[in-house]
């Protein structure tokens, strides 16, 4: 099962390192990463495989939100189906 992780907020050092370490610890594999910086605004989108994760999507999403709060960014993990539904016919 795949999910999309989005990380947004003010750019700072070590964001990718922290998020990747967090995902790896939970058995989540990163399949693709895209990153943009607009002015000082950082936006990273990751497509991840959560089949090997030890928790369900909702629990992982809640943990991502917590991590986001601790590093001062907004981090969301969502089932990929929501993006497929809204942006693909």
């Amino acid at each position: 099962m795949r999910a999309v992780v989005t990380v947004t907020g003010k750019d700072k050092k070590g964001i990718i390192a922290k998020v990747s370490a967090f995902l790896s610890e939970r058995g989540i594999n990163i399949e693709d990463i895209s990153q943009t910086i607009l002015q000082e605004y950082f936006a990273m989108i990751m497509l991840v495989d959560i089949s090997g994760a030890d928790k369900d999507v909702a629990a992982l999403a809640a943990e991502c939100e917590e991590l986001g709060k601790s590093i001062g960014m907004s981090i969301r993990l969502q089932h990929e189906a929501i993006f497929n539904a809204m942006h693909n016919i």
Binding site: D32, S34, T36, A43, L47, S74, I82, F83, H87
Partner: peptide
């Protein structure tokens, strides 16, 4: 991979 603008659009719709 999704178009990154599509992903950010969805996030904006929900958050803002």
């Amino acid at each position: 991979m999704f178009n990154k603008y599509d992903v950010l659009e969805t996030i904006d719709m929900i958050e803002r």
